[in-house]
Design a protein around this nucleic acid. Structure first.
Lengths: 220, 220
DNA sequence: CGACTGACCGACCGATCGGTCAGTGCTAGC
DNA sequence: GCTAGCACTGACCGATCGGTCGGTCAGTCG
């Protein structure tokens, strides 16, 4: 039976060399874009001949779309919801932000592919993105906030969708700007992911308004 | 004297046809990227011959870098600070968000060029970006929040840099995701820029926490 | 007028692009 | 030992790429 297990009979065989090609192509496409990457470069990076790449993938477009498809599918993992708005909301926000940024960084190649697809802005890719389970996970996060509202841990006037949007956009922006942000002295908090997550959670939780208790001030 | 004025011997002449080339190139580079745009396409879009493009710009790289340089310079305009944290903070936040999104949309080509540069992530472009006056304008916004803290209109515990970062990232993300975001039923607020700006300002101002005197707030 | 200039163009160049093809070598089943 | 199948390759192809070249033309200045 172990023989049967080792004997791959599925119509789709992963293939050892093909994996190297995919990995190399993902890295190159992510860093230089579709048009900026040649099949010869991919072959060289995967240490095979160019013809071998065409043996495994019918065309450059096919290879690219296969990778983008995988990225879209993996996009769901990017924001697996560990947000629990019923207990300690601020702590949950902090943990989510920290885990999310960590995931974005780990899936860097995949995320860059997605970012590039967003920029090219074809309706096909946004359809794929919309149907890739991202909106489902997004909804799960929104639902968590709604439950928090029902339980009184989240202000009732808050738009839950916008709040999740705000949280995700901050992480995405941090991930995309990378070193640029961390170099700014006004943004020293972003140097460490942990302090960033903690401060972000605090800001989202308490807001900018002063004096949570002692009344509101009058205009001068 | 008008002769002297019209006869300005500046080293840089604007040139009428060259403007068309620049505009066409900016649009194409923004939508398809550097490698995805050919000089022949640019020439056709500008309704000149390919040789004419090379007459005005030494090389494709030169043309592109000229555009990116302009974009970097124009990047400062993108967040000209009309944030006034000393008066009505929530209203100022709303106005800033609204104006910022409007500006991002109007400078779409320029902003997409910048986004592409961020993705390619060369240190040269992030150096340019850092020195393009963006950090100065960013600092102006941060200073506004600091003054707000001094005057008591902004909570003292808030990290002003992070708050500005959060505001900008939300707008940038909205701008970049575009239709994708507005299609999500959980994000109906983002359909109209005005409601988006208002809700964003409210969320940033009051935060998610339930206790901050929820009774005295009414929607417009 | 002639000398000169800058905007503009058609034709062309070598290099590189995505893609094809006729094989080579290795392994597994007979 | 034979052969079918598969991963893999070098050599090659037409198309397109960025870039060059020689030259036309309208306008300007002395």
């Amino acid at each position: 039976m172990n023989r049967a297990a080792s004997r791959i009979r599925a119509p789709r065989a992963p293939s050892p060399g093909a994996r190297r090609i995919e990995a190399a192509a993902r890295r190159l496409f992510a860093n230089r874009g579709y048009a900026g990457t040649s099949m010869a470069e991919i072959a060289a990076a995967a240490r095979v001949s160019k013809a071998t790449v065409f043996h495994h993938f019918r065309s450059k477009r096919t290879l690219y779309e296969s990778l983008v498809g995988d990225a879209m599918a993996g996009f769901r993992e990017q924001l697996v919801p560990l947000l629990d708005a019923e207990g300690d909301l601020q702590g949950s926000l902090r943990e989510f932000a920290s885990a999310h940024v960590e995931r974005l960084t780990r899936m860097q190649g995949t995320m860059r592919l997605i970012a590039r697809e967003m920029l090219s802005g074809t309706s096909a890719s946004s359809d794929l993105l919309a149907g890739s389970g991202m909106s489902q996970n997004f909804s799960l996060l929104v639902d968590a906030l709604r439950r928090g509202q029902a339980q009184g841990t989240v202000r009732a006037e808050v738009d839950p969708g916008l709040a999740v949007f705000l949280l995700l956009s901050a992480n995405w922006f941090l991930f995309q700007t990378g070193t640029l942000t961390r170099r700014n002295p006004d943004l020293a908090v972003t140097i460490s992911t942990e302090t960033y997550a903690a401060e972000l959670a605090r800001l989202l939780y308490f807001g900018l308004a002063p004096t949570a208790g002692p009344g509101h001030q009058e205009s001068p």
